[in-house]
Nucleic acid binder design. Sequence first.
DNA 1: ACAGAACCGGAGGGCCACCCCATTTTGGCG
DNA 2: CGCCAAAATGGGGTGGCCCTCCGGTTCTGT
Lengths: 224, 224
Amino acid sequence: MPSDSRTSPPARPMRADARRNYDRLLAAAAEAVAEQGAEASLEEIARRAGVGSATLHRHFPSRQQLLEAVFRDKVEALCARAADLAAGPDPGRALATWLRAVAGHAVSNRGLATALMRGAHDPTLGATCHAMITNAGAGLLARAREANAARPDVSITDLLTLVNAICLTVEQEPDAAAHADRLLTLALTGVHPVAAPAESGPHPADATKQNSLPSGSAMTWNAP
Amino acid sequence: MPSDSRTSPPARPMRADARRNYDRLLAAAAEAVAEQGAEASLEEIARRAGVGSATLHRHFPSRQQLLEAVFRDKVEALCARAADLAAGPDPGRALATWLRAVAGHAVSNRGLATALMRGAHDPTLGATCHAMITNAGAGLLARAREANAARPDVSITDLLTLVNAICLTVEQEPDAAAHADRLLTLALTGVHPVAAPAESGPHPADATKQNSLPSGSAMTWNAP
DNA sequence: ACAGAACCGGAGGGCCACCCCATTTTGGCG
DNA sequence: CGCCAAAATGGGGTGGCCCTCCGGTTCTGT
């Protein structure tokens, strides 16, 4: 790849009206996808943008490409976050925090998880976002592994698949964020009891508190 | 609710031709769903069954009801399996085995996971399969919890959601079964490295007494 | 055999993705 | 400034899907 950054380094810098319509479409798509998820009607998106449907299909030949464009900035933010976290002192916690952040973005931006997963298994153009996320996470996982905070046999793809799977199926529930976080915690820490399972403790000192409620739970998957 | 058992005790036992078409539709649906997943075209199903589309909609007013009918026997098998496993000596392992079985059915029967999850959050008629599975699993989980082989804060719904989430997103991959099993293991045991990677060492029979060692948990949850 | 109930399926409406091509808009150049 | 070819547009057509009416057909009890 020629390795550029921005939208694209067009040999011919896109005509003014084309760019205008492109931007309108992007905005309309963001809106519609936020409301109706990744399967929002393309025609309605075009309609909202005040543009013919043919124009939409010309700018974004596939739904996937549209989604990628819509979520590009969110994905970049996530990658930046990964870079930040990579500087921290606790690789295990950093990875966990980042995965949680991914989940957070996925639930608060309907369609993101879908876009990511579709990019994962579609060799068709537009797998860029998936690749970006994967790269960003790979670094975090590598450090966690070195610090012996993650099994050597787990790949970043596994982890991200899990996160996306959770977010995908929880996406349309009322309190998606809480549920996703809860399930993610479960997946990261395992099902087995973590510590002395105090049942009737009237004092939810530490463990019990996290047990009963989803909460952010800063708990890493380390046994306390 | 009158709550009966078998398929249904129809006051009027269904006319012969109606039953014939019903069966044809079911067979065609099973075929189409196996090939194309839960979103298979209803019209094509009717077409394959050699039946007008109106007939399909008359017998199965919603897609969900069709899916439920298609998968009913698989779900019953799964419930039976749960009952079998409940008799075993090791509740923790029984639960894990059963969840794996659920995953196995879900990956080898496209659309099952979808049907189950849709039934979960749709109050519309046809949530029977989801309820059956949930009930079956609840018993297993209760025993596992008593044996201290599962955290008290995890619900059967969480577990099944996780299983279905994994199967759903892995469903259309080439080696879905292997991948699903892999991710399920990961989710059940957690990401943290096991202290002593399963070596030739004999099982500590009393791993249930585990207090602080993650290794015990990994053992408990490993595949049979 | 007959009448009425149960059942069927073609036709049609509303919506959608995608494509073709006549028409309009841009932007560089004389 | 005006011209014109290339770039971009969008109305309309095609084919598919889901779902519902409704006139015609088939079954079943007597």
